[in-house]
């Protein structure tokens, strides 16, 4: 639970803000992840957070939320559920090697330098069966030198 509390602190919300949720489940009816899993419900997750219950790192929404803001767009209170989920991902440490490489590049260069990210993520890409897509990705390839953003 302290983890969940800490995650909420990372957002613009306080736990009690979720008391406005009407339980209408409109968010669930439009949720992109729900479209493909049929059992994901952002309302249920918010309610559990509000009631001080734990959220597990295996929660399908925490794993697979695409950050599409469909839920926010449809919610009468426009609750930014993906921002909450993003904070949970951070706090529960469910980031993929690719996300870690992304952040590594940002702290090193100040930008996402794709060759660096790719290099760091190679084992993950091989394990994950990404090599089969390489022929379709040729147009994205190319080399350029990194730009280093000045520290301020």
């Amino acid at each position: 639970m302290p983890q969940i509390d800490h995650a909420i602190e990372l957002t613009d919300y306080r736990r009690q803000d979720f008391s406005v949720c009407l339980g209408c489940k409109i968010c669930a009816s439009v949720c992109t992840v729900n479209d493909i899993t049929g059992n994901t419900n952002p309302q249920d997750m918010l309610q559990r957070i509000f009631l001080g219950k734990d959220i597990s790192a295996d929660e399908p929404l925490v794993r697979s939320c695409t950050g599409c803001y469909r839920c926010t767009g449809a919610c009468p209170w426009e609750i930014r559920i993906p921002d909450v989920i993003r904070a949970l991902r951070h706090e529960l440490n469910v980031e993929s090697p690719f996300e870690k490489a992304f952040k590594g590049s940002v702290s090193l260069f100040g930008r996402v330098y794709e060759p660096y990210v790719l290099m760091k993520a190679v084992p993950f890409l091989i394990r994950g069966g990404y090599m089969q897509h390489v022929t379709r990705w040729m147009e994205y390839m190319g080399f350029h030198l990194p730009h280093r953003v000045k520290r301020t």
């Binding site: 990372l10 950050g67 921002d83 904070a87 951070h90 996300e99 992304f102 996402v112």
Partner: peptide, 23 residues
């Protein structure tokens, strides 16, 4: 000049994310 990454959707800490773009 010398822009930095906006952080995309990769940062769970809202302030950290917004700070990239504020810079």
């Amino acid at each position: 000049p010398d822009w930095n990454c906006c952080g995309a959707f990769e940062y769970g800490d809202r302030k950290e994310l917004v700070n990239f773009s504020k810079k």
